[in-house]
Simulated scan of single mutants.
Amino acid sequence: MAETAPLVLRQDRDGVSMLTLNRPQARNALSREVMSALQTALDEVAVDPVIKVVVLAAAGPVFCAGHDLKQMRATEGHAGHLETFRQCAKLMTSLVHLRQPVIAKVQGTATAAGCQLVASCDLAIAVDTAKFATPGVNIGLFCSTPMVALSRNVPAKAAMEMLLTGEPVDAAEAVRLGLINRAVPAAELDSAVDQLATKIAAKSGRVLKLGKEAFHRQREMGLEDAYAYTAEVMALNMGLEDAGEGIDAFLGKRSPVWMA
């Protein structure tokens, strides 16, 4: 593949946008250029009124090997390294704050910032041969930023074991820990992701946006604050035309017709 090939591919169909990391010769490592291309794609999808679901995929046998270590070694000084990690942090938070739900379609191994990428998505389906790891400790670079997403998806002791040992977990264990939703044979990955994306895309886009934002915000709150906040969200939701349409359709035993 030529180096001039797009670093991120976009394909839209039926309200679903698939964004594919396209640097397989480098195991889809997150160079500054790859992160910039993915950020641009997310920013464009965010304002596309037709798109209700985003699928994050990757070309080649590896989903994402994390940061581009060759590029990082060629970068001199604290300021340059800090800029790279801040760029990555913005990318990961963009996935969380994107109005559309994001499904990670994991066709291979995801390590370090690649594991962080999976953990930052709302949902994840992987092939049953995939492995997940935060192996930075093995090369003297603790996976501190991947830790943020990892520790918000799996139990604390499981996260610490992954971080302290650098050892990978297989897809079955990743399901058990809650890092991914399910693992499927490679031949079933496309259909499993398509079915999930299609099911979600059939919902109201406004309601999906409202619900995703509320989910992530309430997770950071105490119990009473979370209930107070979500009560406001549900009252706001009840005022939307799509809520009225959905309830009327349910009572009338017909399919709803969403505004968006």
Rank of each mutant, 00 (worst) to 15 (best):
M1H: 14
V233I: 12
N237G: 11
T4Y: 09
A41C: 08
A249L: 09
A156K: 13
A228I: 15
A46Y: 03
I247Q: 14
N22S: 12
E232C: 11
Y229T: 12
A171H: 01
A249P: 05
V54S: 04
I180C: 01
A197T: 01
A226L: 03
D14H: 08
Q39W: 09
T165Y: 04
M18W: 09
M221K: 11
E83I: 12
A171G: 03
L150Y: 01
M234F: 09
I247C: 12
A235G: 08
E213D: 15
V184M: 09
G211I: 05
A130T: 04
C143D: 13
Q218H: 15
G108A: 02
C64Y: 01
L208C: 03
D248S: 15
T111N: 05
D225M: 14
K105Q: 08
H78S: 13
C121F: 01
D170C: 09
H78K: 13
G211N: 10
L179E: 02
S17P: 00
G239D: 05
A159F: 05
D43W: 05
A5T: 15
G205R: 04
A192I: 10
A89F: 06
E188F: 10
M1E: 10
L123N: 05
K209L: 09
R254G: 06
E44N: 15
M221C: 09
V47C: 10
I103P: 00
A113G: 06
V102E: 04
P24E: 11
R219Q: 11
S204N: 10
K157L: 15
M160Y: 08
N138F: 09
R73P: 03
D242Q: 08
L30P: 01
L123H: 10
L236G: 11
L98G: 07
V137D: 01
T134L: 10
M72A: 09
L95Y: 02
K203F: 11
Q11F: 13
G205W: 00
P61V: 08
K131A: 12
L164H: 12
M1Y: 13
T198R: 06
M259G: 10
I200D: 01
T111F: 04
R176T: 13
R206Y: 15
T40F: 11
P6C: 09
E173C: 03
D242F: 07
L150T: 00
G178A: 02
A113W: 06
L56E: 01
A202E: 14
F85H: 07
H81D: 07
K157C: 14
V169W: 00
Q107P: 03
C64W: 00
P185C: 05
L196V: 14
A59F: 08
D225Y: 14
A41R: 03
V16G: 00
C115W: 00
V62H: 03
Q39M: 14
E161M: 07
A149D: 06
E245V: 14
G15P: 06
K253A: 15
L56Q: 00
A159C: 13
A110N: 03
A228P: 06
K212Y: 07
E220R: 15
I103G: 02
A89Y: 05
L163S: 03
P61Q: 10
R13S: 15
E161Y: 07
R27I: 06
L196C: 13
Q107F: 05
E3F: 09
S120E: 03
C121R: 00
K90D: 10
A243R: 06
L223I: 13
P101I: 05
Q71P: 03
E220C: 12
